[in-house]
Amino acid sequence: MAGDVQLADLGVARQIADGGQGVVFRVAGPDGLLLKLYHDEVRVNADELGRLIALPEGFAPPDRRLVAASTAWPCGRVFHRGRCVGLLMREAPPRFVTSIAGAPRLLELQFLLYPRRPMWRELVMPSADERRRLAVRYARLFQVLHGNGVLVGDVSMRNLLWSLVRGPGVFALDCDGFRLLGRRPAVRQADTAGWVDPAARIGLPTLDSDRYKLALVVLRLLLADHAVTPTDDLGGRLDPELLELADRAARPGERPAAADWLPALAGVQV
């Protein structure tokens, strides 16, 4: 637990990313701790961020362990001149980083949704069975979050990572966009294009819209197709049990819960 810190007290080692909402730095000192410093125009709700940081303490121990191992959950708020300007979070473990073209690269979900290209030909891609087991990991993560009243909100091919090192594993980034059901997020995030629930109001996720996005993750991962949606004709591409779930995912209000995917993924033929 990093708690609240002053920006001036942090030794910043190196910038590692510049995203839409802020710049991410590696912090000098404890290994694996990152600082996300928001751009000036980003409004941060410090109270909600504090609530989000404290949330896993109230989870049952197995859920707490899963969230700790599978997310970059914020662990501290960063203040400057009395204003919350950033957060501290854990860096993705090394198993979620690879080297492509001689440079480190996060293993983002997007690599699994496009045909292999010469530029990332050295990347070890999952087999069909490993894709299924990765889908199980994503569904388990959503199940635990939803079970504890947490919505993911913005789901995209960039903020979900995967690994095959020591077995299939997943990791979620940008967790400051997570929110408690019925509450506002600490930081508002735009929906990623192509990952929007057509039935939801933009920026207002619900449990049903989160379930729709999980369906996108599962289907796109299994079918290695970045554009597929539950409303597409998937006959012949999925086994009957998964087809039935995809069909439900296409109907607002009836989207399968995360747990519903688990038995169907256990013995799937893709």
């Binding site: 001689g102 530029m119 091919m157």
Partner: peptide, 13 residues
């Protein structure tokens, strides 16, 4: 530039 864009499937697409 090549490394940044070429290893980003969405942008490269």
């Amino acid at each position: 530039l090549h490394r940044a864009v070429g290893t980003d499937p969405v942008v490269a697409d």
